[in-house]
């Protein structure tokens, strides 16, 4: 186990290294004009040169790459150059991560709770009225692009009024808990549909399996069967992806955070790429890709813990 873990860690380090280096080089292919914003015409050539020098962009690319890695080894992610000039990257994201993670984790909890119970409920009432309603919901959420339904939710639900005041405010406000509800629901809709769909399929599959029949024959109650057998087994494949999705809650949700004006991480990466803030892009890609890769690794470990049949050393499954 230890040897395997070390090997996986090393492997992921190499992956992250390659990713970062590629991203670093790709960013340098973007046009120089992007570093100046709208003021380009008003600057003299000397000023442009000074700005590029300040950003460290006048050195040849390999020197820049070397500088980047040597400060990274010292644990320094650098200072933003355009997004918020001279502010350390850490200071920028440290204010934003709590928002994204809080909402993300709450949304995962809500999705798990509602999604799984919905899945179980529909599986046991297969073909009946509620099953059809829920299936319709799942189809809708999965098929229609999020941008469309999220927009309509904000548009119509925030318009609802009680005694002349809107029940749900249009914008997030950290002092007003009522404003947290809609973003949280919006964020959970997709998760609920996903978990419900998966749980329903899994249940329909499992309930016909021999071991369940045996359990029934033994005289176990449905509740016991559910908790001791079905749920436990259902958790194993889920365990693989849960750590990654928990870790990646720090990246936030681009649509919802921008719709409700939540000052989180969502859209930050797109934003800094478009503004060509190389330092921020590199730092974010580094964080996201390491978390993503380590999340999957943790998932594999967790799966091995829950399912004694799985041996990591020989595993060659999906990654």
């Amino acid at each position: 186990m230890l040897k395997y873990s070390l090997k996986r860690l090393l492997q992921s380090l190499i992956t992250v290294f390659i990713v970062i280096t590629l991203v670093f080089l790709l960013m340098r292919l973007l046009p120089e004009e992007g570093y100046f914003g709208d003021g380009y015409d008003k600057l003299t050539p000397e000023q442009r040169e000074n700005i590029l020098r300040k950003f460290g962009l006048l050195d040849p690319w390999y020197v820049q790459l070397k500088n980047f890695y040597s400060s990274l080894l010292k644990g320094d992610l650098g200072k933003s150059i355009i997004y918020r000039p001279d502010v350390p990257v850490i200071d920028i994201i440290k204010l934003k991560i709590p928002y994204s993670m809080t909402f993300g984790l709450a949304a995962i909890a809500v999705s798990l709770l509602f999604g799984l119970s919905m899945g179980i409920h529909t599986a046991r009432n297969k073909g009946r009225f509620w099953d059809k309603i829920w299936s319709g919901y799942v189809v809708f959420i999965n098929a229609v692009p999020a941008a469309v339904y999220l927009l309509f939710i904000q548009l119509y639900i925030t318009g609802l009024k009680y005694k002349g005041r809107s029940i749900f405010p249009m914008l997030f406000n950290r002092h007003n808990p009522r404003s947290w509800i809609l973003p949280l629901i919006s964020m959970s809709l997709g998760g609920i549909a996903g978990y419900a769909l998966w749980m329903r399929r899994y249940m329909v599959d499992q309930l016909n399996q021999d071991y369940i029949r045996l359990a029934r024959a033994k005289g176990m109650s449905e509740k016991q069967i559910m908790v001791k057998h079905v749920m436990r087994n259902a958790f194993v494949p889920m365990a693989q992806y849960l750590p990654a999705s928990i870790l990646l809650t720090i990246s936030g949700s681009i649509y919802i955070e921008s719709l409700y004006s939540i000052p989180g991480m969502g859209g930050l990466l797109v934003d800094v790429i478009q503004r060509q803030d190389n330092v921020m892009v590199q730092a974010l890609v580094l964080i996201y890709s390491s978390l993503g890769i380590w999340g999957l690794f943790l998932g594999d470990l967790l799966m091995a813990i829950f399912d004694p049949r799985i041996r990591l050393e020989k595993k060659e499954g999906a990654r």
Binding site: K42, T44, E46, Q47, N50, R53, K54
Partner: peptide, 10 residues
């Protein structure tokens, strides 16, 4: 100071 890369120095 050119190190401060002011956009209005000119």
């Amino acid at each position: 100071n050119p190190d401060n890369a002011s956009a209005t120095a000119n």
